[in-house]
Amino acid sequence: MNIFRLLGDLAHLASIFILVHKMHTTRSCRGISFKTQALYVVVFVTRYIDLFYSWISLYNFVMKIFFISSSCYILYLMKYRFRPTHDPTLDTFKVEYLAGPCFALALIFNYHFDFTEIMWTFSIYLEAVAIFPQLFMMQRTGEAETITTHYLAALGIYRALYIPNWIYRYYTEGTVDPIAIVAGIVQTGLYLDFFYVYFTKVLQGQKFELPA
């Protein structure tokens, strides 16, 4: 554990709390892509299969349980509690276009050709692109609530902070995880446009609006 990874994980936790807080206070899931949230459930469930056979640490265990359960809870809120506030006609990105190629890539580029390892690799690739339906939805509506942008910023910063963590681990432990690193850089790259608008507009007190 190092400071970058810890801060990254805390940003990830924060993003989830911001999202749940937004839904409860506004009693709405408007502006949130159900598809992206469903992809995160798939990401966590396929990545943390090792909960059944591998013990890393109490921290690792608790975080994994939290990510799986909170992502399921978010789907429950969207599907049942606040269902009328979700507009499926805005959430039209085809997730097959993400899951299919990610699975094919996981079959080709992995560390070990067995079930759990391919699932882990698939989850890493899928996480990198899971934000697409959300970004696509914002592109369509051209705007986002401020609280939603705080959620996305925390979510983007989480993976961005893993990059200095990998650099740090390379120098201190000599460990390199090329699959996580390449996917993590792609994942962070997808947020650059968003980060630009977030830091130059939202944090200056303006509304998140995209040029028409």
Partner: peptide, 10 residues
């Protein structure tokens, strides 16, 4: 290289 790869990150 045998067995499972250990992934200690989240």
């Amino acid at each position: 290289e045998q067995g499972n790869v250990v992934h200690d990150e989240l």
